[in-house]
Design a protein around this nucleic acid. Sequence first.
RNA 1: GAGGUUGUAGCUCAGUUGGUUAGAGCAUCGGAUUGUGGUUCCGAGGGCCGUGGGUUCAAGUCCCAUCUACCUCCCCA
Length: 449
Amino acid sequence: MSKPSLPKGTRDFLPVQVAKRTYLFSVIEEVFKTFGYLRIETPTMENLSTLTGKYGEEGDRLLFKVLNNGDFLSDVDPGLLNEKNSSKVIPQISKRGLRYDLTVPFARFVVMHQNDIQFPFKRYQIQQVWRADRPQKGRYQEFYQCDVDVVGSDSLMYEAELVQIYAAVFRKLGLKVKILMNNRKILFGLAEVAGIKDKFMDMTIAIDKLDKIGKDGVIKEMIDREITAEQAEKVIALLQITSIQDLEIAFEGFEEGSKGIEEVRQVIRYLGDSTPELAFDISLARGLNYYTGCIFEVKADSEAYPKLTMGSIGGGGRYDNLTGVFGLKDVSGVGVSFGAERIYDVMEELNLFPADVQKDIDVLFIALDEAAHLFAFEKATQLRQVGIACDVYPEPTKMKKQMSYANARNVPYVAIVGESERLENKVSLKKYGDRHAGKFKHRQPGCLF
RNA sequence: GAGGUUGUAGCUCAGUUGGUUAGAGCAUCGGAUUGUGGUUCCGAGGGCCGUGGGUUCAAGUCCCAUCUACCUCCCCA
């Protein structure tokens, strides 16, 4: 028999990992609830037509397609099959695909249920998504996303709210972060001032790489994308502006850029000084081209953790017309996502998970003979009835062996039961680290703890 | 999708210019010490050397393909 294995880019989770992941998700979820967001779920599979064309050419390639059931080859055009043209055959043999993110299914959800929900509709969603990407460390083909969005309002209050959600979650987790904010309209203003309005997307993609490839790299990238060196230099010069006031002066007479500035100002007005984690960053771009207003990105604080190399651990922004592709116009939305897998890795590396997430049982009963074993089981039953998690070693074997098991499971208390305890209706309770145990009479279940 | 590195016991790894029956530590199981937590001592099981081809008298070792993990692009969480 061959050894079992897992599909590429997928993982099992051990109990200790599940405990930590559950902790992480529950902290995030608690904050979402506090801000009045409601949980929804969507199916693992969507119609392929819902998914294709929403993530660009690259995204379509990374979509997992699900083979049709039944005799799926019988209706395929034999000519296409002979050509071995996969891209033309796929629509005929696959009508469904695995969800690639949570945002597009959410847009579909809003359109389909627009009469069942109240706008502004605030929802969150914590589910797996699948991408046929080449796996690397911290990048998987199956992973969780935690999205929180509000649709049906263009109030900038929600931008401020989402910033506060970010801050609240990471404070609870004990992780120091920088929340970066920019605005797509500011980036457009940049292109306008530099005279490359028609190259807006190319410019954005290049700028996005600034902290990775540096100024010269960005200039080169822009030139590769048919932006002149002069224009590229102009963009770089504008990127050096760090204060909002100076930027406002540079944008004088440019409507779109000025509007972006005002939006950023308004968000900051809402927040006051509640979130020192927030910083304006004109070079923040984010690739996704459906963003139209404020954009956000969260990074672990590199000053607090200089050794950490992890990049973005969350991001999002405002999109004015997400549901448009599904036929519902003029519904504005804004949302952010938590990169749970990466947050997990960062927390692990920084040792930020509380020690007690790993604790499972409070007490382990160990018995030294058959009669004591029955007695221990009875006592364990009583403890369980009052909600104390405990376990009984399955047989009254050598104490050393049972103690080793308690040790391996990190049990804080061991209840030892032998003949004398049984006859006195007591257990000898031993706390981890104490040299000797004391005998306690067990009158009320749970009174010992 | 392009380029690169890698794979030996459950885990971490040795394994010589290709040369008899592939080793160690940890873990597991059994035994000794017979009522107090990572100790000690003795012993045992456990391997299609990732998979499939090839070269050779002979392959864990050399060549090709493939899969996996990891790295750089691309893209992203």
